[in-house]
Each structure stands twice: as structure tokens, then as C-alpha cells.
Amino acid sequence: MSGETQLLEQAKAGNLQAFEELISTYEKKIYNYCLRMTNSREDAEDLTQEVFVRVYKSIKTFKGSSQLATWIYRIAHNVCIDKYRKSKASVVSISQLKNQEDEREIELPSRSPSPEDHVIRSEQQKLLLQCINRLKPEYRSVIILRDIQHYSYEEISDILNVPLGTVKSHINRARAALREAVRQFL
């Protein structure tokens, strides 16, 4: 029996220590997923904790028909979607993202060469994250899972419980919108 399997059995039997050890592998990844979905460290921590509390409460019902990581990610995705719905965050469709005026708080970096490349890059990444945050959640999640966390199409399909074709379609459309949005400052 592998280490994770053993911990899982102990966690299902109610062993909190085993559960905490089991989830330690996933905490950082889930936190970063929530962070990229919300673009807020405060929200990301709150949501990440909510995810693992929900995992803890229902670990006994986990039958192992899917990978544990897939199951945890799916809960994380749903928690983020619920948060988005409650906050009724302002989001734009892909076509609007292409045409929208610049509303960024941070000034666009100058196009002239600068010795402080890392500062520029950091600014560009902040702008990128703002653009990602303005995508609809279903496009945001696939971009994060594929282009930032590097999961396969099949894994993303399992996590989000959508067909493979839908995953690829959403990624292509999200990339197209982001390409247009970042073109101005890259």
C-alpha cells in the first residue's frame, strides 16, 4: 500500500494528523490555483482553507474512482466559482476584453529599453494577472490549469468535469483574448 493510500485510509478513519499529512502535498498548488482565480491573497487563503475543510468533512465518501488530486481540484474549482458568483465580480466576455479601454490601475511600462528588466517583467505579470482575472471563470480556470499549472487536457477535463473538446476550445479562446490584451504592453 502506497504512502498516500495508507494516509487516505487513516484519514477516512478519522485520523486528523493523517489527513493533514495527506493534504500537505496539495496545499500550495490549491492555494496558487485559488490565488490565480481570485487575484487576491486574502481570498485565496480563505478559499483554500474552505476547500480543505470541505475535503475533510467528506473524505469518508471519497471512493477512489478518480484521483485524489482531481477530486480536491474539483472542490477548489467549485469553491472559487461560488465565490465569484457571490461577489458578482465584474467580468467581460472575450469580445469585450478585446475592445475594452484600458482601465488598469498600474501605468503601462514604457516601450523604451530599461535596465530594470525584472521590474518591467513584474509589472507585465501584474497586468497579465489582471487580464486573466477579467476572463469569465470557465476560461480563467482552464488557462490557469493549463498554461500556469501545466496540467494535461485530460486532467483538466476530469477536474472540471467537461468534455475534452470543451477544454481545448476554452483554452484557445481564452488565449486569443489574452493575446490581444497583453499585446499592448509586451
Binding site: 493533514e20 487563503e45 475533510y56 517583467r121 505579470q125 497579465l128 488565449r175 497583453v182
Partner: peptide, 26 residues
Amino acid sequence: PLLRLMAGLEEEPLPEGFEDRLHKRL
């Protein structure tokens, strides 16, 4: 350029005290 920029997004560490706070909630 877009993928290069996204690849440069480093994984952030967990906030300080995260596991203690999670333990209390659990």
C-alpha cells in the same frame, strides 16, 4: 510572449501561519 509571461509566474508560498489556521478550522 504570452506563454513566456505566464511561465514566469512563480508559484507563491503558502501564507505564514496558514497550516496553524487550517488546523484550527479542521
